[in-house]
Amino acid sequence: MIKVQQEDFDVSAELAALAAGNHGIGGIVSFVGLVRDLVGPDNAEPALRAMTLEHYPAMTEKKLGDIEAQANARWPLEASLIIHRYGRLEPGAQIVLVACAAAHRQDAFDSCNFLMDWLKTEAPFWKLEETEAGEDWVDSRASDDAAAARWQAKPDRAAE
């Protein structure tokens, strides 16, 4: 299931709803992404006031649906959920929830990891940071591209 929304989400309620009525589920792996402040121990960066997430609604729905379908084709999942928020979010706020439910834990761990990696490189969201120094768009990270690419290079567990 895909939800793209402005409002916050309740992780335990979402996980309970995901598993409700399906006793074939042996485990759920979930990832929650939060708005992280930029300030390090050395105070080298200006404090983050907020982050605004912009997105391309029609494409977001399509890409997240495609990514979820790929995960379900690759791992035997009983249920899956992606929630991604947009709009202005303050430090500590929840941005994203990915949850994968499967009979066995490894499929749940691997598919959740896969979904996050692909979401970061494929889903059309952009982050605008607001600090004391002004506004700036977050740059994409080469490490995210590398993280997504490893799923192409590595055969999935079913093929091993």
Binding site: M59, V138, S140
Partner: peptide
């Protein structure tokens, strides 16, 4: 659509 590299998640 044209846009910079995406930075969601």
């Amino acid at each position: 659509a044209f846009f910079p590299p995406v930075t969601g998640g």
